[in-house]
Amino acid sequence: MENNLITLKSSPKILSSYSVAGNKEHNGPLGNYYDEWCADDKFGKSSWEKAESEMQRRALRGALKKASLSDCDLDLILAGDLLNQCVSSTYGLADYNVPYLGLYGACSTCAESIALGACLFDGGIISKCGAITSSHYCSSERQFRYPLEYGGQRAPTAQWTTTGSGAFIIGEKGNVNIEQVMFGRIIDKGISDINNMGAAMAPAVIDTLVRYFDQSGTKPCDFDLIVTGDLGFEGSEIIKDLLLGEGIDVRKNHVDCGLMVFNRETQDVHAGGSGCGCSAIAMASTIIPNLSSGYLKDILFLGTGALMSPMTLFQGETIPAVAHLIRLTHSEE
């Protein structure tokens, strides 16, 4: 098997992270940890799309302020969201005078943008960049499912798109080290149910994790946490079960951002949260600060994305998925 584990020799760091969340997320288990939240899910704007853009704008502004930087210190912005043509990112970040690359990796975009930024830093191409991702329940629901006020029932395996945006500044100083990166392969195991995205994405996580443990020579117990993006309850149970069959036991230290952001018992989100804002706000508000403080020392983060569109689903296609891995460690400076 070829080696596609990337070890970053120049140790890029995450300088700062900033999270902006919606009201339902604020009422969830991580409610007190978000840097900013808004009771009005429209964030004072006239449409849901503008609201999502506003979240990205605020997230980057907050992350820059935390790192005591201004936008002219950045060499590049890597950003993405779930909407067609990545419009939340372009409209939200247009005011910043920084070269911009729009990314689409569905819900894996948070990991994708951080991983790409770290690789560009490692190659000496940039010295500082911003990685920003967002999703909004209302704008996604409109694009991928039904009108917001449409009266329908959800399947128990369905997930709830997170309203939130997370921004990360990557550069050379900081306490969170980006040690290794492994990009995911496109994996399609034949799931076509849009109400069971966890099951569609789980095989991609398994593929990346198996390759990672094989090529890095590490074991799950070497890490404080193995964080997945938005597998939700269903996908999390599947990876724990199937990885065990491969002799890899992640039951003790696996957490999923989709299960961290919402309380499944009380918030009526069925299998948990999803969307690229889901892993972005969970990482920016909770995981990164704990790595920075040294409470967490060594973790794996896998961004998980389901790469279908409503059109391909209507045409009877199955759901391809991808999972990008980043190894993050605490570094004393």
């Binding site: 009108p147 006020e149 449409y150 009266g151 329908g152 029932q153």
Partner: peptide, 25 residues
């Protein structure tokens, strides 16, 4: 409707909701 399911969908109320929700959206 989240509770009622087909209870609100099948009567004429479901059709009205499908049209009105699209319009609002």
């Amino acid at each position: 409707a989240r509770v009622a399911g087909a209870g609100t969908l099948v009567p004429i109320t479901g059709f009205a909701n499908a049209v009105a929700s699209s319009a609002v959206d």
